[in-house]
Every structure is written in C-alpha cells, then in structure tokens.
C-alpha cells in the first residue's frame, strides 16, 4: 500500500515540474525555477558530502566558478559544442575535487571547512588574475545551449532533466550500502572502521562526485546568468549552499531540496524579504537550528510518524536461538 502511493506522488510532482512553463505565468518565474534546479544540481551532490558523510564544505562556490568559467571559455571562446562543454566542466571540477580533497579530507571538521573556504578565495583571485583567459574583472559572455534547448523553455527542461538525474543518483547512493557507510563516517568513524568502511576513500569518492555535479551546475548556472564576472561567485553563495542542506536536514534528500527551493524563491517572491537578504537567511537558520536542529526533513518524518498507527512499544529482547544459529551458519557458509 505504501510504495505505490510514493511512486504516484513522485509522478505527480514530476509532471507538475515538466508542465511548469505553462503554469508558471511569466518568464521570470521560469528563470527562477531553472536557477533553483541548477543550484540543486550542486546542492544535491554536496548533500552527500555535508548531509551524509558529515564533511563541512563551505567552499563549493569555488567549484561552481571553475565549472562556469570552463563552460564559458570552451563553449564561448573556443566554440565547443555546449553538451561537450558541460561534460568537460563536470570532469574538470571532479579533478579539482580530487586535488582539493586529497590533502584536506584528512583534516578534522573545522580545519576541513577552512581549507574549502581558502580554496574558494583562491579561485576568485585566480579568475581575477588570469585576465586573458577569464576576462578578469570585466568577465565573460556565456553562450546559450544548442537547439532545441536554446529557448527559455528548452533551457529549463534541460536543467530540470539534469537536476532530476542528480536527485536519482544521490537517492540511489543514499538508500543502499554506500549511504549507510557514509552515515557511519558522519556519526561514528569508529563504527565505520569496525565494519570495514574505508573512511578516507569513502569521503574522497563522494567529494569527487560532488565536484562533478558542482562543475555541471556551474555550466548551467553560467548559461542562466548569460554573463559572468568574479563578483558572480561571491563567498555568500557558498554559505548559501551549505545553509540549504543544514536547514533541509542532514541525511535527507527531500529536506535539502525544499531548503533550496524556499531559500532561493522566498526572497525573490516576497519583495520585503529581498531587502533583508542575509538577515532573512540568518533568521531562518537560527530558527531551524534552535527549533528543529535535525532540519525540515525531520519535521516531515515526524509528521508521517504522527499519522501512522502506533503499535505497543515493546522493548523486550527475546532471542530466537534456532533462527540465530541458522542465520550465522548461512553467513559462514557463503
């Protein structure tokens, strides 16, 4: 009874998202939806790093910038096909993720965060200094996607498709053995070791993956901006990605997705909030951390648990020894 309900709601949401160009009203809202999807491509990958394996990266804006410039330079300056340029952006940022992760993922939490912060700052300086390549402070114009994705609707659908793909990939990782291993790395490294999870390699793997999605997101983001300068990639943006996940809840996928939508859309839709800007983010973050430290995702879980019939909460341990013997012997025979 439960599974079909879930699939139906997923299909309904998907249909609504695909049909968005017809009910969104104006092009600005469509642009905003595409921007949310582009952010989500990055945040979805980052979620495995921050939400699941518990590594506090606040510097993914640096990877976003590299992805954006890579796309702008390849597709714009050199006329490479946009599809190829997107893939190249992802690959380059995966490599950057590897180079950044190799030394820094061995650092304890706070120092790792500082390393990613430093990385983001360095990227900004490099984009300013390498003027011949990046246009320096003046920036670069970014070409659109190739037809049929060169219209606002086409652009939206392409970005939506990539966002859905990233969601599916991360969901697959999260609900299988890898997801449990990552949560073990986050909550108890000692346990992770005891069951054989290679802690550093697991962290590095998801970090490289998040680099790839950040690079792809950079390409999509650049197209939506249509013109990029070093100022496009302010450090606040890196914090924003991080905050979306914390507000959404660690160890969830839906929560951070909702966090991304709310934090991107609310300031745009509600004019007074836009003026408040960072104050609004700060207030929301404070409210979540104080009231529901486990994030929006946990609130949903609690609501679902509310509506489920409660069985008598037994706590009595009663071993079934024959079954245990069989289970152990089966395991040893394998």
């Amino acid at each position: 009874m439960h599974l079909p309900k879930k699939s139906i709601s997923i299909l309904v949401v998907l249909a609504a998202l695909i049909a968005l160009p017809w009910w969104a009203g104006d092009l600005y809202k469509l642009h905003l939806a595409a921007l949310i999807c582009a952010y989500w491509v990055l945040i979805g990958g980052l979620n495995l790093v921050v939400g699941y394996s518990g590594q506090l990266s606040i510097g993914h804006v640096g990877l976003l910038a590299i992805g954006s410039y890579c796309f702008a330079i390849l597709a714009g300056t050199h006329g490479v096909h946009p599809a190829l340029a997107i893939a190249a952006s992802g690959a380059l940022c995966a490599l950057c993720g590897l180079l950044l992760g190799l030394p820094s993922l061995r650092l304890p939490g706070f120092y790792f965060a500082m390393a990613t912060l430093a990385f983001a700052l360095i990227v900004t300086e490099i984009t300013l200094a390498q003027g011949t390549l990046t246009g320096g402070g003046v920036g670069l114009a970014v070409p659109g996607f190739a037809p049929p994705f060169d219209t606002p609707r086409g652009t939206y659908w392409l970005i939506l498709a990539i966002a859905v793909l990233v969601t599916w990939l991360t969901w697959n990782v999260a609900r299988h053995t890898w997801g449990r291993g990552l949560v073990a790395v986050r909550d108890s490294a000692v346990t992770a070791q005891a069951v054989g999870v290679p802690v550093f390699r697991a962290k590095l793997t998801v970090f490289v993956f998040s680099g790839f999605t950040a690079g792809v997101a950079g390409a999509l983001f650049a197209v939506l901006q249509s013109y990029i300068t070093p100022d496009t990639f302010v450090f606040d943006l890196g914090l924003f990605f991080f905050v979306c996940i914390i507000i959404g809840g660690r160890g969830h996928i839906l929560g951070p997705a909702i966090g991304t939508i709310v934090l991107t859309a609310l300031p745009e839709m509600v004019a007074p909030l836009a003026k408040l800007g960072n104050f609004f983010y700060g207030l929301l973050l404070l409210a979540v951390v104080l009231l529901v430290p486990e994030g929006i995702g946990r609130v949903f879980e609690l609501l679902i648990e509310r509506f489920r019939p409660r069985r008598g909460e037994s706590h009595v341990v009663k071993p079934d020894l024959d079954r245990l013997a069989k289970a152990i012997e089966q395991g040893r025979a394998q």
């Binding site: 020894l321 079954r323 245990l324 152990i328 089966q330």
Partner: peptide
C-alpha cells in the same frame, strides 16, 4: 534473520 535471532 539475525535481528529476529538476537531478539529484536
């Protein structure tokens, strides 16, 4: 099977 076995 193991969880049933140990009584959980």
């Amino acid at each position: 099977e193991l969880l049933h076995g140990v009584g959980l």
